[in-house]
Structure formats: C-alpha cells, structure tokens
C-alpha cells in the first residue's frame, strides 16, 4: 500500500513534469497533487498573508464598530431591566408586607371593638335584667303583702265565724239540756275558750 502511494503520487509526479511544476510553482506536481506539505510552500505564503490581513481588518471593524457596541448595549440594557424589575419586585414586596400589617392591625382593632361592644351589651343587659328583677321583686312583695292581708282578713272572719258558731252551738246545747242560755255568759266563756 505504502509503495503504491509513493510511486503513484509523490516522486514520479515530480520527476514526470518539469513544465507543469514550473508553471504551478514548486508546490504542485504534474497531477495537481501536493508536493510535501502545502503549508510550507513559500509561493503561497504572500497570498494568504495578504488576504488574512484584509480579513482581520474587516473583521476588526465589523466587531469594533457594529457588533461589540451593540451587544454591550443589549447586555447593559438587560442588566438595567433586571435591576429595575428586581427593585420593583422589592418595592411590591414591601407594599404587600405593609398591606398585611394594615390588615392585621384592622383585624386586631375590629376584635377589640367587638370585645368592647360585647362587654357594653352585656353590661346593658345585666342592668336591664337587674331592673326587671327588682321590679318583679317589688311586685311580688306587693302581691305577697296583699295576699297576707287577705289571708289575715279571712283568718279573722273565720275566727269570728267560729266564735259565732260556738256561741250558737253552746246556746243550742244549753237549750237542749233544758236550760236557758245567758247570752253574755256564753259569749264570755266561748271567747275565753277560743282564745285559750
């Protein structure tokens, strides 16, 4: 394989065509194949160096004049946007914390107010209740006194009735025994007996 290559490509080609190699310089053989390393061929160096310098200068101007400032501005703009957004987010967060505090404050206020209202209502109701109880007590006392009076009356009348009945019964009993009842004597006896 190796012999084939050298024979077919390298040496034979160089020897074979002096004319062609004169025309193409010393870098290419008659078949148009490379002689040695094309990189080391002096004939081509100037051409590459010239076009490389052109390329680099053009690239440099494209980068320095257009591309790099543009990318730098885009990046700084993004940086600014991100910073602004972060600041805005921070601001909104502070506001939300504030709102939460206000909410908690309002809640606490409402709770204490509710407590106060409850206490007041309780006190009012207690007052009304006490009053009603007092009124009911006096009414009850009045009723009781009235009832006691009625009972006393009834008791007095009952006592009298008993005396009457006793007197009459005593008189009748005395009459039944054939005596005559002295009314005054009977009533004094009955009175002493009933009282005693």
């Amino acid at each position: 394989m190796a012999t084939e290559t050298t024979a077919g490509h390298g040496i034979e080609g160089v020897q074979g065509s002096q004319l062609a190699s004169e025309m193409a310089g010393s870098c290419v053989n008659a078949d148009g194949g490379a002689v040695g390393l094309p990189q080391l061929c002096g004939d081509w160096m100037g051409n590459q160096i010239f076009w490389l310098i052109v390329t680099l200068v053009v690239t440099y101007f494209i980068l320095a004049r257009i591309a790099l400032p543009r990318i730098a501005s885009v990046l700084s703009e993004r940086q600014g946007t991100v910073t602004n957004d972060l600041a805005a987010a921070e601001d909104l967060r502070a506001r939300s914390v504030e709102a939460e505090e206000a909410y908690n404050q309002a809640l606490a206020d409402a709770r204490t107010e509710a407590q106060a209202i409850i206490a007041q209502n309780k006190a009012e109701m207690q007052g009304e209740l006490n009053e009603a109880i007092k009124r009911a007590d006096t009414e009850i006392a009045a009723k009781t006194a009235e009832s006691e009076k009625a009972i006393a009356e009834i008791r007095a009348s009952a006592l009298e009735n008993v005396q009457q009945v006793a007197r009459e019964t005593a008189a009748e009993i005395v009459a039944a025994f054939g005596g005559t009842a002295d009314e005054a004597k009977v009533s004094s006896v009955v009175n002493s007996r009933v009282k005693g």
Partner: peptide, 10 residues
Amino acid sequence: AFHPMDQFII
C-alpha cells in the same frame, strides 16, 4: 489513492 495533503493546496 492517498492524497491527504491535497486539501491544503491553494
């Protein structure tokens, strides 16, 4: 056919 260097010809 080995011509590995032909690709570098100007």
